[in-house]
Design a protein around this nucleic acid. Sequence first.
DNA 1: AATTAAGCCAACCGCCCTCAT
DNA 2: AATGAGGGCGGTTGGCTTAAT
Length: 320
Amino acid sequence: MGRSPCCDESGLKKGPWTPEEDQKLINHIRKHGHGSWRALPKQAGLNRCGKSCRLRWTNYLRPDIKRGNFTAEEEQTIINLHSLLGNKWSSIAGHLPGRTDNEIKNYWNTHIRKKLIQMGIDPVTHRPRNDHLNVLAALPQLLAAANFNNLLTLNQNIQVDAASIAKAQLLHSMIQVLNTSSSFDSHPTSNNLYGQSSFLENQPNINEDFYDPTQSLSHINDHQPLDSFSSPIRVASHQDDQSSIPPLISVSPDESKQTQMMIKNKEIMKHNDHTSNPSSTSTFTQDHQPWCDIIDDETSDSYWKEIIEQTCSEPWPFRE
DNA sequence: AATTAAGCCAACCGCCCTCAT
DNA sequence: AATGAGGGCGGTTGGCTTAAT
């Protein structure tokens, strides 16, 4: 390694930037570009380390920074990309024009992560969480799935008993919670909602598809896990071939690598595109649809929207 | 009105990678 | 091959703001 951090130099200012410092940095970069970041502070008359200047510029002062709330589309893109790339914030930021890796990282940690946890989704694996305490958090999901039975009567063409399975699982889980609540700590991985003894354990499509990362979270009230509605339907649509349904998200390292390779290839192609056609504005959301391919036309957004709206008009056991 | 807790986010820290010598 | 400079990246911190008591 053999290099001391650039900020070790004594006497350099740290902490929040003043408007004057910002202006100096902007003026210098407008006139000369950033060049060597290490040399920049002296040239610009700033008592900061180069690294601090670079961060300030890339995360805040850059003219193409988009500020303000994230849109539903951006949020969805972040979730999709995170399920593929993990905490590769800079890669994710590369697909969100005007957003910085730092901003996306903060938004993930303060908003999206919490939403996923509240829905019983592990924000790292994007799969249903396996811990016992999650049973309680997942109850609304199960009840939502059970409530989905009403939908089935509205959509006669869907031939599946997923709602019945969910109801059975709900009762099963509640009984287990009552029976095992005193030994949660000692048996952290058994008798839980998605664990070994779960009735749904042998219904992988229901377990694994409970969360659909292609659905945006932004419209979801914290206590209304609408995503849970979509899963049983999708199970139904693939009922004929349950064993061969690909997971919505890559789980194994190999799968993850394959997906990342696909993205890299896409990026290379996109880069070539941009090179030959600078006006191109394609983004991941527009030309990467890794999950949509397995959803047939009947399961389009409008189709789900209609179903969700119908469901929301039904009495909701947890609505406040 | 005062205090405490929780949420948020800009900025920092330190490790890692690439490239030049 | 070894070393160091420069920069990128993800994780973490600390201070400010807002909400709750």
